[in-house]
Structures are given as C-alpha cells and as structure tokens.
Write a protein that binds this DNA or RNA. Structure first.
Lengths: 325, 325
DNA sequence: CTGAAAGCGCTAACAA
DNA sequence: TTGTTAGCGCTTTCAG
C-alpha cells in the first residue's frame, strides 16, 4: 500500500502538495499536478479514506439496528433507507441483532466509538437508559424513547382504517395479535386502535400473543396460526403483519374456512408478499419509501446540529384492497 | 468527546499509560489502573475505535456487494452471512448497487480506500478487469472471475435434479428462464444443466428472457409471467427462481391452468416463500447457511494470507418436495 | 512500572 | 504556487 509520502517522493514534491492536488484544495501548478498524477499511477496509490475521516471528524457510515432482515417489511425498509442515505453520501451498516441484547449493546458501543456518524434504530430491546445516554445522533423507527426523535407510520390511523373496514364487512369477532415482549413501541398503537374501534362498535376482540420469533420463522408462524384458529373457531376477522396474515390465509384454506366469507383477513404492512397468493391479501400499507426519506432527513439534521421542528413524525398509511375482505 | 490526553491529565499519568491500562498491554500498577478507571468514568471516555484501526491496519468491516436486498434469497443469504461474520468479529456493510455500474465502482473504490478489510461479491455487473486489479481480499458468490475465489451452490447438480424430477413426472416441454445480461455467472449453469438433461431425454426446452428488474418488482414478474404463459400455452414444466415460480403459479391459477396436472413448477432457491401458497412449491433448495459459512471461512483465510486449498467451492443443493410437481 | 518521543497517513495553517 | 510544520487520537517502542 503506497502512502502519500511515497507518491510525494517519486513526484519530487511535498506530501502536502500531493494532498492538495488530489483534493483540489489550494493551488497546484498544472505541471506539478501532472507529475503527481504520474506518480499516483506508477504506485497505484489510493488515499486511505479512514485517515481522511480523521480530519473530517466523520466516517460517513450510519448504523441501522435491526432485529433481523428477512421479513419483507424490513427488507423493503432497509432497501429504501440505503438508497436514501446514499443520496446524502452516507453508507449504511446493517446491525443485525437477532433480537439479542448483547449484540445490541455491542453496536451501541460501536456508535459511541465513533465508527458511525449516527444510528437508526429499527427495533430495540434494551432498556431506555442505554439509548438516552448516547451522545450521538440517533432516531427511532418504532420504539418510543423520550429524547429520541421518532419517525414511524401513523399506526393509530392504520388500526382505525383496518377496524372500520372489517366492521363494514360485518366482522363481529376479531383476532388481534401482539408480542407481549414488545413494549413502548409505536407499532403497537395499531392494535390498541383496532381494539378501541371494534369495541366501540360492539364487536368482540380476542387478543393472542404471537412472538417475534414465530413471525420470522415461517414454519413456526404456520404452527402458531393453526393453534390459534383451532382455539378460536368462531373468529371472523384477523389483522396481522404480512407474514402472519399469509400464514393464517394458508391455514384457513387447510382447515376449510372460507375467506373472505367466514373469515376476513387484513395484512398489516402491505409488502409485495401480500400479492403472492391467488387470493391477494387486503392490507394496511406502510409507506416504507417515505419512512426512509423522513428518517434520513431528520437524522441528517441531527448530524448537522440543526434544530428539529418536530421530533415525532407520523407517515400516512394506505388501505390496499384485496380478495380477503 | 474526551480524549486519552484528558483522561491522562485527570489521572495524572501519561497518555501511554492510559493506553496500556485500557488495552491490557504492558504493565500498569493496580493503583494506577484504579486512578485511570476513575478518570475514565468521570469523563465518560470512550476510545475512538476508528483511530485504533489505524494501528491495527484494519477496519473490521467486510463489504457485501448486492444488487438488491428484497429478494428472499438475498435477504436470507445476507442474514446468515452477517451472523457468520459476526462470529469472527467482523461487521458487514451491505453495498446495495441496485444493479448500477457506477455504484458498484464506487464501492470497489471504497474497498481500495481501505474502508473494508475485504469484500464479498454477491453479484457483479462490471467487466472482469475492475475486479482483477483489486489488491484486497475478495470472493465471489456467483460471478466467475479468474483469480477470484468462488463459493457457490452446485448449480450443475441443481439443474440436473430439477430436470430429472420433471422428466420423471412426464414433462415434455419445459420453460427455461434466463437473463441475457448476466454472463459468466455460476448460477446460469443450472439452466445449462437443465437444458442438457431435458434434451438428452427427448424433451423440448423453450428459453425466454426474464430480466433481473422483472424479478425484483413482483408486479412486473406477474406481467412477464402472463406474457410468457400466453405465448407458450403448451408448456408443461417450469423451473424458475422462487419469486418467478410464485408468479407463474399465480398466473397459472388465473388462466385456469391446472398445477401440477398440466403444468409442473419447481422453484429454484427454495426460500421460505415457496411455502406461502396453499399449494407449496417444490424447490431446489440452496443451502444459504452453508454458503455463508464457507464464504466467510475462505475470506478470513484470504485476509490472514493463508493459502487456499481450493478456489472453487460448490455447496450441495437439495430437493424439497411440494404440491406443484 | 512509567513517561517521553516517535509515528500511523493524512490535512491545514502558515511561511516562503 | 510550494514546502514546512504541527497535529488529528491513539499505540508503541525504548529509556529510565
């Protein structure tokens, strides 16, 4: 690995001149530039970006904390986020925690050790205090942490739309899924909203737990969906994330339950997988592109120490029709 | 951000002593250590990892070049790769090119600028020479580049298994899909293998192009699948990647083609989405966990300048039954 | 056991 | 227009 000094020596100039020539900062005679260019070619010199970062006091890397990346909601979200960060010259580092607290702590450490210029928290399992003490720019996409800006979907509205749609179709007994381990997350508001609207309108709501781990392993989703449908044979409506919704649709078919006649299903997320089946699944669609855009906009403001006009941003959701309601 | 110098001053020792105490390198009196510990706590000092890397001559980051991340094959593969890299203390940086050559070049540049200790190439669209000149450890997962170690599935066998399965079920007229833009990739061997086996056994093979861009946008897959099935109404077998296979299954249903009676479908990849439909899709399953494991093993060897016993590694594939054959 | 000094590879201020 | 010098925050000799 050639260094700037070697280039300087070969071109018979000072290292600082090489630096200036290469960065276009300050004056360098065209003739000198030429000599330097030759030396660079000769030695195959490539400046070390890490070292440069030292002076810029930045790394150009944004960490993205995610519990996993296989769920299409996350794949899509991170895909858009990457594109968006790239526009601003940032690279994205996916920090996959697999839901493990130690790994999450490790990555927060990495942030504090200045490897990232900022961090986007897709999901968090550590107590609030770990996030609160962080001195660097962070934003959250779901977990509600006081002092940490939140960019998320308008889940209250999402739950509302879903519930009203089901009521309109005559649902009387709805299944609501929740992961008891996830507390203080914005996404749980959709469930609360669904329950409120359903009950206000005289419908019954059955809440069952559906663990995170069961969502990401599809075979487990299937098993859990079967358990739940067997335990509650008289359900007539389900709102669940794309993967779960898909599992319920499959199990309903297996059990001979007619969808949408006897059971109506609305997926929550609305990624492309809701179009996979012959019956497309109706969905509350999150606008992942806009979430990504807003998240990056806010993070960049934080990094540039600009004031935030708003530290809670709610991105609109949309209803997408399908064959399951 | 407190620096080591501030800690040293507060603890009334030299910066080098702090360094030694914190790294456990060299001797430091227990008493001195205690003073340093106090100063660290007092100032909330966190060593700057990025500066430390300067001395280690490494960054601990591996770049992973991928054309996109939404396709479940890639999501799964990168998920396992991340886990595997993490075991060796490396972080993974996803380099999403969106199939764009400029972005790919940019990331190769990033590698040369020492931001990564090595790189894993998931897909490549640049001419070979760009890869050949790289002086840092790289391995490829699909594209065949002389001098660059390859870790990939045994696609020849994969194609073979698929073809024989279809023949066994009586297929006479098979659809083979290929992206004409993708040249010199290991994965195309499955198609070649399928064609060979089918033709050797007296079956006909129709090859149609199916562009990458049509695969990753599911709505485009659907449209293309419809086009193809309309153009070739007498097909009785299809081998295609999970997403395409899913699109064909859906369109077959829409067109009233009975699967598997009139049309047999085998998905190639075998990710969880092949289990989504009421009819599970038969598949040639790639062992992504093992691919990830092998890739990392080889890359680490390269980084440590250990000799490679083999620069082409073929990971076994498996047949997974389903309702579509 | 500890500190001074040199230096990782580069940039920036200033002098020439 | 160029070179000298100092230094980013840390580690690593090496002398004491």
């Amino acid at each position: 690995m050639a260094s700037i000094r070697e280039v300087a020596k070969l071109a018979q100039v000072a290292p600082s001149t090489v630096s200036r020539a290469l960065n276009g900062s300050g004056y360098v005679a065209e003739e000198t530039k030429e000599k330097i260019r030759e030396a660079v070619d000769e030695l195959d010199y490539v400046p070390n970006q890490w070292i440069r970062n030292l002076y810029q006091q930045k790394t150009g890397i944004i960490g993205v904390m995610t519990p996993e990346i296989i769920h299409p909601y996350f794949s899509s979200l991170w895909s858009f986020l990457e594109l968006e960060l790239h526009k601003y010259g940032y690279n994205m580092m996916l920090c996959n925690t697999s839901g493990k607290k130690e790994i999450e702590r490790e990555y927060l450490d990495t942030l504090e050790r200045n490897l990232f210029d900022g961090m986007i928290i897709g999901a968090a399992f550590l107590p609030d205090k770990y996030y609160k003490k962080i001195q660097k720019p962070i934003i959250s996409l779901d977990r509600i942490i006081s002092g940490v800006p939140l960019v998320t979907s308008d889940h209250v509205r999402g739950g509302d739309i879903a519930a009203r749609k089901l009521l309109e179709k005559g649902c009387k007994r709805l299944l609501n899924l929740s992961d008891p381990n996830e507390k203080m997350v914005a996404s749980s508001r959709s469930g609360e909203s669904i329950i409120r609207v359903m009950e206000e309108n005289g419908a019954e709501v059955v809440t069952e737990s559906f663990l995170w781990i069961d969502v990401i392993h599809y075979s487990r989703s299937i098993r859990r969906a079967r358990e739940i449908l067997k335990a509650h044979p008289n359900l007539d409506g389900i709102v669940a994330n794309d993967l779960c919704a898909s599992a319920f649709l499959k199990i309903a078919g297996e059990m001979g339950i007619s969808v949408p006649r006897d059971l109506k299903i609305i997926a929550y997320d609305g990624t492309y997988i809701t179009d996979f089946n012959f019956k497309t699944i109706a969905a509350i669609q999150q606008d992942v592109a806009l979430i990504a855009k807003e998240a990056v906009r806010v993070l960049i403001k934080l990094i540039n120490r600009q004031p935030l006009e708003n530290d809670e941003i709610y991105v609109p959701v949309h209803y997408k029709g399908g064959d399951t309601v």
